[in-house]
Amino acid sequence: MAHNQDGNQKQVHYVGDSRVRVNSKEMLPPDYSQFPGKTEQFFPDFLLKEWMVAAVFLVGFMTLVMAESPPLGDIADPTNTGFLPVPDWYFLFLYQLLKYKWAAGPFISIGIIVVPGLLFGGLMLAPFLDTSKERRPLKRPATTWIAILSLLGVIGLTWAAEAEHVIQVSSSSGTPAKDKKIVAEQDKGYELYKKNACIKCHGDKLQGVQGPPLLGVGDRTKGEDEKLTRKDIEHIIDNGRGAMPAGMFQGSEADKQVLLNWLMQQKQK
């Protein structure tokens, strides 16, 4: 291969003692003299500044780390049917997208191939879709608008997923009760529970029929570790939640307090 086909007596240079030709046209970074202003040596001048930025960043980061200890829940229990799964926040947009009817079930390919394909494919192929020389975002409005709209879409989906999760956590049955006993079945509260429609959905043993079980509702948590309060329960009785309509309790205010007292007694051992 070292022969010159065109008969030119050009000297051929090789790298070291190999047969690799020395590339005559070196790929040098652009000469920064073409940029106006004060260029700086990378080492050590600029690197020192980078380290200062990193140090400031590290202080902020360690403050976060020390302020919030990393969460660790109970050991995984596959039989726990009440647990509401939620992926890490950066997957929420995809998780939410797949909840919509037009992107799930028979249209699952839309949710899992078409939309993410367009999003990530478009991202990956951006240099080949936007081939103009223009770099300023305002001078290439199509690219900029597509990017901003996709960005808003992803942020909106993430936000919707988070909002939906908060609602679901508050209306989920929570961790199933460990001991399945009604407390104070002879109480007047139970009478009121029976007389009003509560019993139809929540069951005669508070076990839950169409609605969630109320066993242990007195020391239930909502969300991560916040206690469900008497006020919360009263709010649900008055305004309903999820499938439960508002104003299910027909009795007097005093009776409602009796019922609430009784519900708050429902604690698990």
Binding site: G73, A76, P78, L84, P85, V86, P87, F91, L98, I112
Partner: peptide
């Protein structure tokens, strides 16, 4: 995604289950 499962708490387990279900729905 892979790191989220490792602590093996409920959150990790169920999130991974959902993630794998999503992967499973790829045609």
């Amino acid at each position: 995604f892979t790191g989220y499962l490792l602590p093996w708490d409920n959150k990790a387990y169920f999130a991974t289950k959902v993630g794998i279900q999503i992967a499973e729905s790829v045609p």
